[in-house]
Computed example of a mutant assay.
Amino acid sequence: MKIGPKVYWRKTTGEIIYITSQIESPWAVETTKEEDVNFYPQLKGYDQDQLEVLKLEFDKYTQDFQRATGYWINPETGLIEFAYLSGGGGTDPVYQTPLTDQVSDLKARQDSTEAAMLALMDVTTKS
């Protein structure tokens, strides 16, 4: 069984408190938020009403975590955002949608554009 990591974060600020490891094992078992809070020392002492969890798919954003200079959860959307090195030389991190999601969106748009162009070419060549 493959279990993705869980990102525990503070509701009000988006601060990431702890990320569990992903697990691949035939004996792996999904755990609840309450079980994790009792197991991981990093989660103890936090107000449970202010602690949120974002469950990620197995291997989701692995490259983003490796390449990013920082990450947080956007409290308005509940989604993870990453900061990457930029050639602009700015010192403040600029958080954005994960690059893997951006690439997937661009590929889908490219496929859609190519299909539309092929359909248009087909219509114009038959005329």
Rank of each mutant, 00 (worst) to 15 (best):
M117A: 14
E15F: 06
K33F: 06
E34H: 02
I73K: 06
S25M: 07
T12Q: 12
E114C: 10
Y18S: 04
I23S: 08
E30N: 11
K60C: 08
I19R: 03
Y18W: 06
K33Q: 09
F82L: 04
S112G: 09
T124K: 14
L99G: 01
A28Q: 10
A119R: 14
Q102G: 10
V7Y: 05
Q42T: 01
Q48H: 10
L79V: 08
V123F: 14
D122G: 10
V53C: 11
I73N: 10
T97R: 11
Y40N: 03
G88V: 06
V103A: 11
F58Y: 15
V7A: 01
L54Q: 13
G70L: 03
L106A: 15
E15D: 14
Q42C: 03
N38I: 02
D64S: 05
G90Y: 12
I3V: 07
A68Y: 04
R109M: 07
G70R: 04
E52Y: 00
L79H: 12
M117R: 14
N74V: 08
E24V: 08
Y84T: 01
D49L: 10
R10F: 13
P98R: 04
T20K: 02
T12D: 14
L99I: 11
P98K: 00
K33M: 08
Q66V: 04
Q22A: 01
E34K: 08
S104W: 03
S127I: 12
T31K: 13
Y40T: 02
K33W: 00
E15W: 02
D64M: 00
T62I: 01
D64Q: 03
G45C: 14
F65V: 04
F39H: 13
V37N: 02
R10T: 11
F39R: 15
L85T: 09
T69L: 11
F82P: 02
V53D: 06
P26Y: 05
L79P: 02
G4A: 13
Y95V: 06
T32R: 05
L106W: 08
M117N: 11
V53K: 06
Y71W: 10
S21P: 07
I73S: 02
F58A: 01
W72F: 02
E24Q: 13
A116W: 03
K33G: 00
T97Y: 00
F65M: 05
